Simulated scan of single mutants.
Amino acid sequence: MVQVDENDLSLLFQQGIQGNAASFVLLARRLVSRLKKSDPATATLLAETLSSMSSPTRSVTQPVDADSRRGLLKEEMAVVLDHEPIWSPDIALKLGRVIDERRLATKLRLSGLEPMKALLFKGPPGVGKTMACRWLARELGLPLLTLDLATVMSSLLGKTGTNVRAVVDYGRGFPCVLLLDEFDSIAKRRDDERDVGELKRLVTVLLQAIDEWPSTSLLVAATNHPELLDPAVWRRFDLELDFENPSEPAIVQFLRAEGISVTVATELAAIYAGSSYADLRRSAQSAKKAAVLSDRSFEEVLAEEGLTSMAALQESTFLRDVKIKRLAAEGISHRDIAQQLGISHPTVGRVLKKTKGN
Rank of each mutant, 00 (worst) to 15 (best):
E299T: 08
L319T: 00
V292Y: 14
T308E: 14
R296D: 08
R281T: 04
A291Q: 07
F298S: 05
Q314I: 03
Q314F: 06
A312I: 01
L307D: 01
T317F: 15
Q314H: 04
A290R: 07
K289F: 12
T317S: 12
S283H: 12
R320A: 08
A284H: 08
E304A: 13
E300T: 08
E300W: 05
A291G: 09
Q285N: 14
D295N: 15
M310F: 14
E300L: 10
G306R: 02
K288R: 15
A291P: 03
V292N: 06
F318D: 04
R296P: 05
L293H: 09
D321W: 06
R320M: 15
Q314R: 03
L307S: 07
V301Q: 03
E299G: 09
F318Q: 03
R320V: 04
T308F: 15
Q285A: 13
L307H: 13
L319D: 11
S316C: 02
E304W: 08
K288F: 12
D295L: 11
S309G: 03
A291L: 07
S316A: 15
A287P: 03
G306H: 07
K289T: 11
A287E: 02
A287G: 06
T308P: 00
D295M: 06
T308S: 11
Q285Y: 07
V301M: 10
A303V: 01
Q285R: 15
V292G: 04
A312T: 02
L313S: 12
S309K: 07
Q314D: 12
S309W: 14
D295K: 12
L302V: 05
D321L: 04
M310P: 00
S297K: 02
A290G: 02
S294E: 10
L302C: 06
Q314L: 09
S286A: 14
K288H: 12
E300H: 09
L280D: 05
L293Y: 10
T308N: 07
L293E: 13
A311I: 01
R282I: 09
A291W: 09
E305H: 11
L307E: 14
T317Q: 14
S309I: 02
R282P: 00
L280R: 02
L280F: 14
L319F: 13
A311Q: 04
